[in-house]
Design a protein around this nucleic acid. Structure first.
Lengths: 345, 345
DNA sequence: CTGAAAGCGCTTACAG
DNA sequence: CTGAAAGCGCTTACAG
C-alpha cells in the first residue's frame, strides 16, 4: 500500500476523511469509519511517520540515550534494558514509542545528542550517567526540548531529574558497619567524573563524621565501575598500610571482582573483611558468602522516569498533575552474610 | 533556528542553495558554501529529519530490534550492546544512524515489527533471536524492506542471515570430550522454539553418531537460556538415573548457575564432571575451575552484520561488492580447566 | 458528516 | 553557480 491517497481512492472517499477515520476523530460516520479501518487492515496501510511528523510537528518517539562505553559493554550492563519495560508501559498509554540511542564510543556524547535532537527524531529525551559538569543538560535546556536526567549534576539551573538515593545508601551502609564495631571503613568510588561519585563519597564522609570518625582520604579507593574495578579495589585495599576492616562498593558488579581478589589473598569476605555492595544484581547473587546490598525495582524506576518526563511535556502534562518533580529513588537494604560479623576490638 | 527558510533569509540566498551547500552538492560556489556552513554552525541549524525523509523517501536510520524478554533482562544480556560498536562503525561511513527498538514484552513481536516498518521509521532492520518458524521473516520479505537476520530459521525462502557456527561448536565440544574418554555426554538446550536449539542438538547428535555413540534423548536437558536455567540443568542432571560424565551448554550464562548447583551437590566441575560452555563471557570469567568455552568478537560480528545488511540495500550495494552472502560466524576454542581431565574407565 | 486545499521542512529536477 | 517551484505523505482548519 502506497499511501493515504491510494487508500482513499480505493475507498472512493477523500484523504481527509480517511485520515480522520484512522485517527479516531469524532466527526466521522460510523459506517465510513468501519470501512476505512477494514480497508487499512486489509491492505496493511499504516501512516508514514515522516508525513505525520512533518505535519504535526511531533514524532511521537521518545529517545533513551545510552552511552556504550567499553566499561558498560564489558560488564553487560542491563540497567537500560531493565528500565525499558517500565518506560514502555507508560509511553504505550499515549501511543509513544521508545527508541534507544546508543552513542558511538568514538563520538562525543554531546555532539551525538545534538545531532539527534536537532534533527528532531525524538520529541523528548532521557539521558543518564550524568557527569559532575554535563554539557548535555545545558544544551537540552537551551534547545527547549523536554528531557529528564537519570542522575543529578552540578550543571544547568532548572531541569528535572531522578536519581538513586546514594545518600541513603551511604549513610545506611556506614551506620550498619559502625554498629558492628567498624571504625576503619573504606569506600570504592568511581575514578571518572560521574556525579554520583561525588554524592556518594560526600554522604559517606558525613555519616562517618556524625559518628565522630575522621574522614581519611586514603580510604577512598578510586577504581573503574566494573568487575575489574572491584578486583583493583581489592588490590589497592591489600596495599594499604593500615588495613580497613570494611569496604563499601559503589557499583553493583564490583563485588564480583573484589571477592575474587580477596579469595586470592586468602581473605574471607564476611569474616576477615566486611563488604557492602551497591545495587542488588542477579549476577552477584551467587556470591559466597551472600552479599549485603540494596534492592530496587528497575521497572518501577522506568515508570517513574516516564511519568516524570511526560509531566514536563505540555501535550501530556494534564495526565500527570503531580508535575515533574525531582525524585530521590529509594533503595532497600537486603542484608546478606558479607558483613554479618561483629568486630571484637 | 527554525528551519532552512530562516537560515536562507538570514544569508539572503535561496533555500535551494542552502540545501545544496549543506549537503555537499558539487555545484555550489566555494565562498557561498563556506558562508552557509558557518551560519548553520553558528545558529545551530540541522535539517529536520522528517522533512528530509519525506522528500527523499529514506530515513537514514537502521533499526536493531531487541526482544526484551524477562530472561534477557534478568541476565543482563549485553549481546546487543556489544554489537552496536561494530554496527555503528560501518553505518557511520554512510551517515546512517542506528536505533535500538526494544519490543515491549507485552506486545507481539511481529505486530511491533510491523508497526515500526509500516510507519517507515527505519530504512532497514536487523532482527535476531530467530525462531524455528519466524513470521517476522515472511513479513519483512513481503514488505520488501531490506533486512538481515542474526540467526537462521526454517521460515521464508530467500533471505539473508548471519548465524553463529553452532555446528562447529557442538562438533568440537563433542569430539573434545570423546577424546578425553567421555561417552555419556549431556547437553543443555533451550526450552523454547528458538532455532539455534534445533541446530545445536542436531549437530551434537551427528557428532556423537560419527563416533558410534548412540543418541540418547534423555541426555538433552531442556532449560531456560539463563543463569537459572543452568542451575536447573544441574538439578536435572543430578536426577538422571545413569549420570553423564560431561555436559555441553548452549548459552553463555548457564555455566554460572550450573556451577552453583554442582557445588551444592559436592560435585567439582573439571574433576567429577566435564563442562564445556558456549560463548566466552566476561561474567563467567571468574568461575573456578576456569570454563572451557568458545571465543568470538561481538564487535567484528557487528561489522559483518552491518556490511551484509548494506549489501542488500540498493543504495549501498556498490560499496559491498561481495554481496549479501549468508555467513556462518566461527568461534574459537578457549580451553579451560572445566574439562581438563581424562576419564579413566 | 465530508471534501478541497493549505502547508509542515525539506530536496531536487529545471531554467537561466 | 543560483533561484523558483514542485512535491514527498500526511493532518487539519475551513466550507459546505
Amino acid at each position: 500500500m502506497r499511501g493515504i491517497r491510494q487508500l482513499a481512492k480505493h475507498l472512493d472517499i477523500s484523504i481527509g476523511t480517511v485520515s480522520r477515520a484512522l485517527n479516531g476523530k469524532p466527526d466521522v460516520n460510523d459506517e465510513t469509519r468501519r470501512r476505512v479501518l477494514a480497508a487499512a487492515e486489509e491492505l496493511g496501510y499504516v501512516a508514514n511517520q515522516s508525513g505525520r511528523s512533518l505535519r504535526q510537528g511531533t514524532t511521537n518517539v521518545i529517545g533513551l540515550m545510552i552511552e556504550s562505553s567499553k566499561e558498560t559493554l564489558e560488564n553487560g550492563d542491563n540497567f537500560f534494558l531493565g528500565l525499558t519495560g517500565g518506560l514502555q508501559s507508560v509511553f504505550a498509554r499515549h501511543k509513544l514509542d521508545l527508541v534507544m540511542l546508543p552513542c558511538p564510543s568514538e563520538e562525543d556524547s554531546q555532539e551525538y545528542l545534538k545531532r539527534m535532537v536537532a534533527r528532531r527524531v525524538v520529541d523528548a529525551m532521557i539521558i543518564s550517567a550524568t557527569q559532575r559538569v554535563d554539557k548535555r543538560i545545558d544544551f537540552l535546556a537551551k534547545a527547549k526540548i523536554p528531557f529528564v536526567a537519570l542522575g543529578r549534576s552540578a550543571s544547568g539551573g532548572n531541569y528535572t531529574w531522578i536519581d538513586l538515593d546514594f545518600e541513603g545508601v551511604a549513610a545506611c551502609a556506614v551506620e550498619r558497619l559502625i554498629s558492628k564495631g567498624h571504625r576503619r571503613i573504606a569506600i570504592a568510588a568511581p575514578s571518572n567524573d560521574i556525579n554520583l561519585g561525588y554524592i556518594f563519597v560526600d554522604a559517606y564522609r558525613q555519616a562517618l563524621e556524625r559518628h565522630g570518625i575522621e574522614y581519611d582520604p586514603a580510604l577512598v579507593i578510586r577504581v573503574k565501575s566494573s568487575e575489574q574495578g572491584g578486583y583493583q579495589a581489592g588490590d589497592d585495599l591489600l596495599g594499604l598500610e593500615i588495613k580497613p576492616t570494611a569496604i563499601i562498593l559503589i557499583y553493583e558488579l564490583m563485588a564480583i571482582g573484589l571477592y575474587r581478589r580477596l579469595v586470592e589473598a586468602g581473605i574471607v569476605p564476611g569474616r576477615d573483611l566486611a563488604v557492602i555492595g551497591f545495587r542488588e544484581e542477579p549476577r552477584a547473587r551467587f556470591l559466597q558468602p551472600t552479599l549485603t546490598c540494596f534492592r530496587m525495582s528497575l521497572r518501577d524506576l522506568g515508570v517513574k522516569l516516564a511519568e516524570t518526563l511526560l509531566a514536563t511535556m505540555p501535550a501530556y502534562a494534564e495526565f500527570y498533575p503531580k508535575g515533574a518533580r525531582n525524585t530521590i529513588w529509594p533503595l532497600e537494604l537486603a542484608p546478606g552474610e558479607s558483613d554479618a560479623f561483629t568486630l571484637n576490638s
